[in-house]
Design a protein around this nucleic acid. Structure first.
Length: 293
DNA sequence: AAGCGAACCTGGCTGC
DNA sequence: TGCAGCCAGGTTCGCT
């Protein structure tokens, strides 16, 4: 499910409730998600204060006053919801009324401010881990992770350096979290359409032999930033599972130019192409065969 | 070494 | 109505 904009939407929803609160209790309803919870997971969280809630690529990072970081990934189908009663109302925050546990509620955080944060993940491709803050960058989750696409270093020159000499198609290379971290199937398709680049084009063709950017590299860098920022502003994309923490849907699926639009007309002014679907590395790619080159 | 396909797991939709 | 088959926003492993 969630790519960078959806994870950032979740972070923005959780932060006002979680930051500054302490964890009174954690309920674990099963021993694992994609991987086992770390030893003593609930005990190591109990009583800890959440100093801040951050994000790296598609990971949420809760910085604790114990010196550990709670690392969370939503996988394909993970979501958080906030439950509270009226007395626990937190200014400016929307939440669900308290309810019975639902199917696939796997982790429940009871917070000192009266709110409850519930992690639900039907497919269990999500992940939670605890890592000492000092070890975070070197940890298995992040040691090989690529650049942050909304950070300062993403530009045409950086993409050219990353792509130089690569024969893999642009689609596959942009999906590789070791190069640029945070993009997934939707936003790769959308960024390639915005930059008029074919998903099957070899990544190396956006760089000179010296690793300098060709024009398409700059267009692609701009398109990646713009599509992610627009998606965050819209609260992410809701196809099946993604919900904001208040239960509302994101809106960016209404702005898709190509994703899930097979056989529909290309939206580029003056282009008379029809959107096609193909499979690359086992994933659907949507693109316009006329204007994407 | 890079790049591809399969596997992990559940649910929703389509078509017979 | 039922059931088989296919598909899904991610990551990782194992094989060329």
């Amino acid at each position: 499910m969630p790519e960078l904009p959806e994870v950032e939407t979740v972070r923005l929803g959780l932060a006002p409730v979680m930051e500054g609160a302490s964890i009174d209790k954690v309920e674990l309803r099963r021993p694992d998600l994609r991987t086992a919870f770390p030893p003593d997971f609930a005990r190591r969280l109990k009583g800890r204060k959440i100093v801040s809630l951050g994000r790296r690529a598609k990971y949420l990072l809760a910085d604790l006053d114990s010196g550990d970081v709670l690392v969370m990934h939503l996988g394909m189908s993970g979501s958080f919801r906030i439950e509270a009663d009226g007395k626990a109302a937190i200014a400016g925050t929307y939440y669900h009324p308290r309810s019975e546990r639902r199917s696939h509620d796997h982790v429940v955080f009871h917070l000192s401010n009266g709110a409850t944060v519930v992690f639900n993940d039907p497919r269990r491709f999500g992940l939670m881990d605890l890592v000492p803050r000092a070890d975070l960058e070197a940890s298995k989750h992040f040691h090989a992770m690529g650049i942050e696409p909304l950070g300062n270093v993403l530009d045409g020159g950086t993409l050219a350096t990353l792509f130089a000499g690569r024969s893999a198609p642009l689609k596959s290379v942009l999906m590789d979290q070791r190069l640029v971290a945070g993009l997934g199937n939707i936003y790769v398709c959308e960024a390639l359409w915005r930059s008029e680049l074919s998903p099957v084009r070899k990544a190396g063709t956006l760089a000179t032999k010296a690793g300098k950017p060709k024009p398409g590299a700059d267009r692609l860098a701009v398109a990646i930033r713009e599509v992610l920022q627009a998606a965050i502003a819209a609260g992410g994309s809701s196809l099946r599972d993604h919900r904001r923490t208040d239960g509302e849907l994101g809106d960016f699926q209404h702005e898709f130019a190509v994703y899930d639009r097979e056989s529909e007309p290309c939206l580029r002014p003056g282009c008379h192409g029809v959107i096609r679907r193909m499979v690359q590395a086992g994933r659907s790619t949507f693109y316009c065969p006329v204007c994407q080159r």
